Amino acid sequence: MTVIGFLKKTVAVPVALAMTLGMAQADTIRIALAETPSDEMAAFFVALERAKANGLDYEWTAFSDEELAIQAVLSGQMDIGFGTPYAAMQKSKAPLRIIFQLSKLKFFPVTSKKYETLADLDGEPILLHSRGGGTDSIANVIEEKVGMKFGERSYVPGSSNRVVALVAGQAEATILDLSNTNKIMEQHPDMFNVLEMFEVEASDEALFANLDWIQANEEDVQIFVDALYTTWRDMNADPTIISKETNPDGPIGQLPPEILGSLDDFYTAAVKGGLYDPEGGGMKAAQADMEWYSEAGQLEGDPASLNIDDFWYMAPLEAAKAK
């Protein structure tokens, strides 16, 4: 049974309980994760440790997908969330704003050998991360650019879980992150193809919150963004910093030894592949997002006419850079 912890302890909470956590101490930031902790989130937890050392109190809840994390922030049950909630930003009356780009959309279509090009997937089922999330938007843009239409879309959070589905023959096409694409092709080169994909610079995961809450908690938000900014810059300079600073008693430290032992390889490949922007995204990421998510059908209107200030709040990131 999972345990709920507060203040400076990380927590893992079942989704059924997560939606009931409406109350928390006012000086504790409540973070909504879009999936359970994994090697892909080790850098984020290193940043949390740095923020905690500078006085930030926090708790986290792992939701089963991005939609639930977004809804938890919209409802005020959580303060900060993981995701790219552009559709919710445009349609909701709540002033959600992104404050930091966590990762770019560096994903790859991986299929069984029966498919050789993206066009071959016309009418074929595909396994994705979450409805309305980054892989869903990639599928939408593939359809637009290639002039085809996927068949049934199924959703399994976590690239590693979708690898398991592929290897078990439960799916024949999915979209995977850089690490798991490399892993499956190293282990099963004769079983799968990586289809040629166009370049993408938009955000996959970003940190967002209600603007009213951000401004009411300016000091805590700045501590958090400062920690993210220094971690992302240090990681790009030396990817091994993540394994060195991972707390052995934290959620990442409790992962299986084979995952912990591959953190250096994971972050070295991720940094080389351009997954993490050392500047935290900012205006460059925001402009790329306007174009990408408009084409993906999650934003309405001409990208050139969209006001970036309606989607991003740059002040904490700019303050972090100034330091």
Results as ranks from 00 to 15, higher is better:
residue 224 F to M: 10
residue 232 W to Y: 15
residue 227 A to I: 01
residue 220 D to H: 09
residue 181 T to Y: 09
residue 180 N to S: 09
residue 235 M to D: 01
residue 194 V to W: 07
residue 253 G to Y: 11
residue 204 D to S: 15
residue 223 I to G: 07
residue 208 F to D: 10
residue 239 P to G: 15
residue 182 N to I: 03
residue 261 G to Q: 06
residue 245 E to W: 01
residue 265 D to I: 10
residue 195 L to R: 11
residue 257 P to A: 05
residue 249 D to M: 13
residue 259 I to M: 13
residue 227 A to Q: 07
residue 220 D to K: 12
residue 230 T to C: 03
residue 242 I to G: 06
residue 221 V to L: 11
residue 187 Q to R: 13
residue 235 M to S: 02
residue 226 D to I: 06
residue 208 F to C: 06
residue 222 Q to K: 09
residue 199 E to I: 07
residue 190 D to Q: 11
residue 259 I to Q: 12
residue 209 A to N: 09
residue 249 D to F: 13
residue 262 S to M: 11
residue 187 Q to W: 00
residue 195 L to A: 09
residue 253 G to C: 11
residue 223 I to T: 11
residue 195 L to M: 10
residue 212 D to S: 09
residue 225 V to G: 12
residue 187 Q to M: 08
residue 207 L to H: 09
residue 204 D to P: 04
residue 215 Q to A: 03
residue 240 T to V: 04
residue 184 I to A: 10
residue 231 T to N: 02
residue 262 S to C: 08
residue 213 W to C: 05
residue 257 P to N: 01
residue 260 L to S: 12
residue 245 E to R: 08
residue 247 N to M: 03
residue 226 D to P: 11
residue 205 E to L: 12
residue 199 E to R: 09
residue 231 T to R: 00
residue 222 Q to T: 10
residue 188 H to N: 15
residue 202 A to K: 06
residue 244 K to I: 04
residue 196 E to V: 05
residue 240 T to C: 12
residue 251 P to H: 07
residue 201 E to M: 03
residue 250 G to L: 03
residue 206 A to Q: 14
residue 196 E to F: 02
residue 227 A to W: 09
residue 246 T to H: 01
residue 238 D to S: 15
residue 182 N to P: 07
residue 188 H to T: 05
residue 194 V to P: 04
residue 189 P to V: 10
residue 247 N to I: 04
residue 226 D to H: 08
residue 247 N to G: 08
residue 184 I to K: 12
residue 221 V to A: 00
residue 260 L to K: 00
residue 180 N to E: 10
residue 219 E to T: 05
residue 189 P to C: 12
residue 208 F to L: 12
residue 232 W to A: 03
residue 247 N to L: 06
residue 222 Q to I: 02
residue 186 E to N: 13
residue 242 I to V: 15
residue 184 I to G: 03
residue 229 Y to S: 13
residue 251 P to S: 08
residue 208 F to N: 13
residue 260 L to Q: 04
residue 220 D to S: 10
residue 182 N to K: 15
residue 258 E to L: 11
residue 256 P to L: 14
residue 207 L to I: 15
residue 196 E to S: 14
residue 186 E to P: 01
residue 232 W to T: 01
residue 213 W to R: 00
residue 182 N to Q: 13
residue 233 R to A: 08
residue 214 I to D: 04
residue 253 G to D: 09
residue 251 P to R: 04
residue 228 L to I: 07
residue 204 D to Q: 07
residue 239 P to K: 13
residue 258 E to S: 08
residue 218 E to F: 06
residue 210 N to C: 06
residue 223 I to F: 04
residue 246 T to K: 02
residue 202 A to T: 05
residue 204 D to T: 07
